[in-house]
Structures are given as structure tokens and as C-alpha cells.
Nucleic acid binder design. Sequence first.
DNA 1: CTGAAAGCGCTAACAG
DNA 2: CTGTTAGCGCTTTCAG
Lengths: 340, 340
Amino acid sequence: MPPSEPQPVKLRDIAEAAGVTIATASRSLNGSYGVNPSTRKRVLEVASRLQYRPNRLARGLVTGRSQIIGLIISDIRNPFFSEVARGVEDAAYSAGCDVVLCNSDLDAEKQNRYIASLMAKRVDGIIMNSVTALRETEQEQLAQSGVPVVLLNKSFALSEFSTVSADNERGGRLAAEHFLRMGHRRLAHLTGPRQHGNLTLRAKGFTQAVREADPATSVAVLHGGHTLAGGYAMALKLFNEKQDVTAIFAANDAVAFGVLKAAMERGLRIPKDVSLIGFDDVDFASIVHPPLTTIRQSKYDIGEAAVSILMRLAKGKDKSPENRVLGVELIERESVRKLN
Amino acid sequence: MPPSEPQPVKLRDIAEAAGVTIATASRSLNGSYGVNPSTRKRVLEVASRLQYRPNRLARGLVTGRSQIIGLIISDIRNPFFSEVARGVEDAAYSAGCDVVLCNSDLDAEKQNRYIASLMAKRVDGIIMNSVTALRETEQEQLAQSGVPVVLLNKSFALSEFSTVSADNERGGRLAAEHFLRMGHRRLAHLTGPRQHGNLTLRAKGFTQAVREADPATSVAVLHGGHTLAGGYAMALKLFNEKQDVTAIFAANDAVAFGVLKAAMERGLRIPKDVSLIGFDDVDFASIVHPPLTTIRQSKYDIGEAAVSILMRLAKGKDKSPENRVLGVELIERESVRKLN
DNA sequence: CTGAAAGCGCTAACAG
DNA sequence: CTGTTAGCGCTTTCAG
């Protein structure tokens, strides 16, 4: 008879084989306090010989913790999020947790379904890039569910959520100052939807810095999709309507790549005809032509930080929300030209 | 008193509230056979009113299925894998499963730890990009564990594994034929490590097609990292040692981007001085300068297909392994020049 | 059609 | 230091 379905070995098996009860077996494995060293050694040996794998579902059922954290992002194909995800996963791995991946497309219904599903799995925590798509009651419910939540943007809504984000406002300022320094006076900013927390802050930093430095400088702000396609569309529109603009600040690198594409099609040269700054510094920023000047934020670190906050929250001791802001820096490459 | 930790409502609660026993409550929720429609209706109402979320750990403990599938890939930051992951996640979502993300960096120890951890969670299946890093005994053990496994490359090892992959060999042929058609006779192929199943097949298709068509045509094959950095290094080496090569087939787009970078630094123009074909057709292939001619494989579909096989396997009925091969196509853009 | 009861595999008091 | 026991929340026979 073929051993088709190998019965997984359970605690009882190793207890019997080691000549102890299931309780001491458990204690030995979990390294808790009082167990005779020699007994423990024996149990451990048997366990490894039999390749014992504790059933985490059973353990989770009694402890109430699943060693799983949920990661709800817009789309893993976005290089920004895949880098964040890697940071999350590495940190979670170190902490002995698994991460379940959820792509929400920023859709409220999907987000709600994912949240429900994660809670049903009794996850130890949830990392979400944004909750702005949710209704206030839904946000409140989430905040009060008892499950630790870390957001990847500064929430304008409930302050009960912990957050981790780059210093978006400062990033916007850096872009503005660079353009100004390089002699540009007719600027444009291509950004995403108005509700987007991170992008709104970038826009705010950018426009404010311009206004403070030189009220005469003009800055046209276009809203659109914060994707390559969105950047492409906005750039096309801009090139049609505002032909005097000399410098564009894109809300993120993807949008900047869209600008690059549109410019190439229109026969506009970057930075000769128009200068460009992105935001994120994704891998490809240094590969495209011309290499993109951009605001770097440490995506990996954001993911890592989110997990570290989650772990503190999950420990149960200190439940107070934390808002961590990570630094940004201007990476000068070749997409900005000095005027005059 | 503050309702700090809202006790999750459980089956018993809704049973009581509906005036039935926990058993009929369960039956009503799970839509199984015999339950009085009116009873069921009542239970369902109470459940939704109380926002009942069945504890999946408990359910999993008794059913033996967790509704979780594991995805072990090299690195989610690789655009190829992030696209696959999206396909996996979408398909899993439709099937009511969650996916836990594991980045192995192709490291054997990490892979083993992830496998162990996933089995401990009693996952319904595992999707892995490759098992070639594992020892034969480890592979065998995995194959016999009873957990359905789908690989993302044609395994040369155990044939017990199901696999999903693009038609890599044909992709290599397409590249070769295109170069030949365009008049190139001094070719190079920049590929990854020798054990890499998918890449090996691409190389095989490429070199064989060349040999069959014209034995006089030379093709230099370099091995290196199958990443941007690897492509960069290999290209530099190639430009130093084989200056007469007119066309390069990169094992994937990342490698091709590395070639682009190296060429730019060396002042070589693509496709004027040297032609280039990639493999994958990641998003950025159409954005880089020049837009990259490449072999497209449907990454999203690969992920989707992997899940569909997994689901069949998990159903338990038909356990026979399946090897699915998806089509590829040449996407002509601007990185290949016609000679003469 | 519905209720009672036996666990799924494990942890955590509580005794000894 | 170790054994006994009571569940965690749910599904699933087996009776009624």
C-alpha cells in the first residue's frame, strides 16, 4: 500500500515516543520555564527525528495569535509597493511571522473584504497603505477592532492609527527648491487624486516652497492617475495647453516615466526642452533615458518600520499609536537643466 | 468602562441569539443540505447583524484546510515576480484563499524554512518558482508531503511536481530567428546561472535555432547574474572582449536593462552599434530608451494558471501532476537594427 | 430538519 | 519538575 497521505506527526506522537505526557512535550518544545534539561533534550531529539511540525492553527486557536500579518496595498506590481513589501516580509520573517498579501486596487469593497478575511484569520496586525477609501464608520470600526493597524500614509482621518511614511512635504520642498535654484520660473506639478494623503503633502510642500521663495513663479497643478498611464495623459494635456512650462515635478516616478514617454512622442527633449523631477527613486529611475532626478524615499525601510511598530502593538503592552516619518533626499541625475 | 477589546462574536453567540443550537447555526452558515429555509434565514440575519466572522483557525483545525496558499519566489521586487504574484493573488482571492508571500532569494535554507512554516500552517498548496536549490532528498520529501505544489519552471528533477511556465525554448528561437532575419551573424547571449531551468531553455532554443539556420553564425554565451547588475557586468565584459558582436539576446529584460546601461556608459548606441532583445516584456521594456524589443510571456497568466492547478490538486480528486506551457511572442520595438 | 456530543491539535492553569 | 484536565471555536457524525 502506498503511503499516499503521510499523517502529519502530532504532539501526542512525540510525547509517546519520548515517554512523557503531551504537556511536558509542549513545554519542552516551547522552551518555557521548568522542564528537566535531560527530559527536554530527549523530547527535542524525538521531535526532530520525527520531523515534528506543530500545527499552528491549533496553537493559534488557543493562544489567540496567528503569527500572521496582513499587508493590504494597492497593487504589488507598483515597484514602490513591491519594495515596501520586501521590507515588510523580511522584518516579519525575522519576527517569526508570515505575511499575507492583499491587492486592493484602492477599492473600498475589496479593502473591506480583505480586512474581514484577515480578522477572521486572527492576524496579529494589518499594514495598509491607506484607509481613505473607507467610510468613517468603517475606519472607526477597524480602529476599535483591537487588531493593530499601521498605515503607510499620514491619515487625516482617525488619529488612532499608527503611521509610517516618508517626509512627503519636505520632498516636495526639495523639488521646488531645486527647480528654483536651477532658474526655472514656470513650473507644473502632475499629481494624483485629491484624497491621496502622501501625494497631497508632496503637492503642498512643492507649492508652498515656491510661493514662499518667489510669489511671481507660476505653478500649474494637474490631477490625474498616479501611474505611468496617468502621467502620460497629464503630460500630453500639459504640452497642449501650457507650452511655456519649463519644469515638471511628478508626484512619483511612475508619473515621471509617463511624462518621459509623452515627451518622447512629442519630440520634446528632456532636459533640453523641459526639466523633470520624480519622487520615490525606484530602481528604474537610474536606468531610463535620461536618468531621472528624483526624491528618494526608503521604501524598504518603510516596510520594516511598519512591522516593528506592529510588533510592539501586538505585544499588547503599549497600545499607543505611533507616527513615524522617514527622511527623503534629492537624487540629482540628468533630467533637470540649468536655465541661462 | 471602555470597551477596549471587543470580544469577537462567535458561533455560539449567534446560535443563542437565533434560538437554535450551534450545530444548526453552523449548517445554516455553511449552506450545507438539510436546514429549514426559514431557520437558515433567521440565522443568517442574526449573523450579519452581529457581524459574525467565523474563526478560520478553528475551522481549519477541524477541516484540515486553511484556505491559505504559499507563494515562494526569489524576490517580489523583481517585476516578473510581482506580476506573477498579482495573478496568483487575484486567482486566489476568487477562490476564497489568502496567499502568504515568501521571498527566498533562491536560498536553500530560506526555502526549507518557508516550506516548513507553510506546512505548519497547513496551507492548501505551495507555488514555488524553483526547487533546484534544494537537495534531492528535500525535493522528494516535499513531493511526498501531500501538499500540492506547483513550480514556475519545468523541473528537471522530480516529475511529480506540477509546473507552469512560458515556452522558454520557443522564446529563444524567436529571438534567434529575428536576429538572423535582420542580418546579424555575430551574436551573443547573456544568461544566468547554469542551473536555472527557464533560462537554460531560452539559451537552448536560441543557440539551436542559430545552429540549424546557419552553422557559420557565431554565438558567444556568457553566464552571470540574471539581474540588472548581472547584465551590466556581462555587457561590460562582452564589450571588452568581443567587440565584433552586433546583437545581444539577454536572458530577461532586467539583464537587457543592464546592457542598456553599460552601452550608454561606453558610448555605444543601441541599436546603431549593437542590437538587443530581452525576455519577459515587463512594463518598463516599452519605456526605456530605446524601447526594447523583447519576448513577451504572460506573467499574470502564469500566476493564475498556477492557482488553478493548485485548486484542482487541493480538491483531492485528481492528484496527477500537470505541466502547463504558455505561449510567447516577439514584441518588436526599437532595439534591433536591420544590417545592410 | 435539528440537537447532542465527540473531537481537530495544542496551550495553560492547576495539582501533585 | 511533570501529569491531568479543561477548553480555544468550529465541523460533523449520530441520534432523535
